[in-house]
Write a protein that binds this DNA or RNA. Structure first.
Lengths: 223, 223, 223, 223
DNA sequence: AATGAATGAGCTTTCATTCAT
DNA sequence: GATGAATGAAAGCTCATTCAT
């Protein structure tokens, strides 16, 4: 029980350790149980930590949940960062498709938790203000994609008639929705394959548009 | 047994009355408190009904919630029934814009409750199977819109390169997402105006597509 | 619903009818469910009577139970009445054995309900005073058997050293106990046969006594 | 973890303390209120313990009751262990009388609770299987007494015509019944004296038997 | 008289939080 | 800091009883 000092060398302080264990355990439990059914006892047991320890690291349960939300929202895939580098490379469709795949992975992971928040308006409010303070939210993602699209407009690879923000929004919407639908109807296990096909088709639909005359050439030239 | 006719005039059967009051009160409370925080006591008080009455009309709390979900989900498809009549009328963009407005109203109303369900996987499961039994779900809406698009393809007002289901999905995704975002970030009070503008732009983006060469004529001819 | 007058001719008044149905239904339910789990709703349903009707015939649930207890205690087997006629007939052992069989049937039927009363001291109190008022109770049975034994003592078929009341008590005790044990350990379904054998042996034990010298003759002569 | 030794001196572990307090309080309440009327709130209050504490020590209310039953049933057999030592000592009648006194104390204490169980068949079922698992039950007591009787038969102090098991059953039956009758008719307060006299007489009745010829000698020789 | 929808006090149980060790 | 037994408010639900019809 009295851990030899040496054992600590090279490892984080136990305090930080517990914090991480708690956040990790909560994330794991939320993957299978729904925010409303995860108790502090469950969390403590899953984290192999005493129930009281939770209150050394977080003011209350809500703050722990908040931290988990933050943790989940924080790890948005790095693929976005490489997007500016893709300008002019490959095809626009392919680049957008790749972004969408990353976005989907992210959305699929965090959708249940984010939605769960609606069950507790107070908690939702706290998340809201926390995100406001740190200016987090989908706006960042949107603007990265929009910036990419604008750059492609400069190169003439995207029509100037397109509104970059709107297109970016559409893409993220379809990604989030596909993820949510999967959780709602298949319990989150509805083969990635199907989802990815849907996303590719969504990008195609955006690229193609509905206009009556643009059937021929373009539809095939960039596949 | 032979209740005087006069006693019934102007009043529904009291049984049905209480049922409706309970569903109504629950809907109202869910608008402000989040599924996880609405207690049977709150509901009974808001409905001006004894707590026990809840259990005359519903087997348990979950069944009441289920009825509310059903009530909320139930009244949307009706709006869509006029869509087939629009084929060939006005412009495609205008017709889709109108559909999207109805969809948005619907999504905005029910998003918090539907999302709340993720906090309670058991309840979610019951909703899932209820929707399965009655073959409800977004697929219905999608296919109505897709059918419309196919009809317009026949008339040459929509490019045959578009995949109707995918386009319909994109539209509904953006509607739901706009609604959800409004609740998440503005607490559900974020001016309809802004949302409607976003939806109109989304339809435009779909109509326009991204292709580099279709800037000129079409972009303006159907405004 | 408006029953023709003729239909009532020759039948008891409906009021009495309902009373009987309620008592009967309660008896039936108590046979399978235990006093604490029988609700007024169960009773009304089983009696095919409205829940409210119960309160037309009984002041409250306890009074209904009281009536059931009374009804059960009331039908003690007629065999006891014929016991005085058996004096000097057959063998003492046989006569006592026959009485014990009747007593056992009675005890087996009423034991669960009587014991249930201990779960509600107030109800038990009401039963107690009701029985006191009507001077019911096992004392009556005991004295009938004791009277029989005394008569046999006069005839020299029972030793004057036996105390009739005590012997009667012993017999009734073993009957009640056998019944109770059956309910406790076999759920009330433990073959009558086994119980009857035990009772016959109990009578034999009483007849034989333990005295060290009375092994031979008598033990066999009255079999 | 390293609790100072002094802190433990003179006090049991608090956990065990609460457990005992709960069982004790429940026993006390059952003495005056009847199983069906003892609520968890009552118990917690009587034990001077928070209501939630009950669920740290017992899975549910039934398990607490089970523990109480076990506690009551548990401490009887010990009294009987001295019986084998009495073989050949004193008189058979006296030895049996002494056993019966212990049995009666035991029966008088536990009768109301055991009977209460008939009000809740589910609980009764759990007690049944618990007793089955631990092979408890009156059979044990019976066989101890029967063994004693058999030993006395070897010594010629008990007639070989007696069936030891049956005699033992008779004795226990009369003990239990006297106890139950006392609770039923006098509310458990009917002088011990009277009960003891009845028991002594019951033993006498067994020893004497009913046989017509064994009046003289034996009846007096062992008083 | 008869009905059964409505009542609401009260039950068992859960769980976020505290605090002596 | 760390522990986990203890707390007690509050939840969902039951059921004897009432009363308008």
């Amino acid at each position: 029980m009295a851990r030899p000092a040496a054992a600590r060398v090279g490892s984080r302080s136990p305090a930080t350790d517990q914090r991480k264990k708690l956040i990790g355990a909560t994330e794991r439990l939320l993957g299978s149980q729904g925010l409303g059914c995860v108790t502090t006892r469950d969390i403590a047991r899953a984290a192999k930590v005493a129930e009281g320890a939770l209150y050394h690291h977080f003011h209350d349960k809500a703050e722990l949940i908040l931290s988990v939300v933050l943790h989940q929202l924080g790890d948005f895939p790095g693929v976005l960062q490489s997007l500016p580098l893709q300008v002019g490379q490959n095809t626009v469709e392919k680049n957008l498709g790749r972004v969408l795949e990353s976005a989907f992975a992210f959305h699929h992971r965090m959708a249940p938790l984010v939605c769960s928040l609606f069950a507790d308006q107070e908690l939702l409010g706290r998340v809201r203000s926390m995100m406001h303070e740190r200016s987090m939210g989908p706006a960042r993602t949107t603007s990265v994609i929009a910036a990419y699209l604008r750059a492609e407009q400069q190169l003439g690879r995207v029509t100037p008639a397109a509104v970059p923000e709107t297109v970016a929004d559409l893409m993220l919407a379809v990604s989030f929705n596909t993820a949510l639908r999967d959780h709602f109807f298949q319990g989150g296990s509805g083969g990635e394959a199907k989802a990815h096909r849907q996303l590719r088709e969504a990008v195609r639909a955006l690229v193609v548009g509905l206009g009556p005359k643009n059937e021929g050439k373009r539809a095939r030239e960039k596949r």
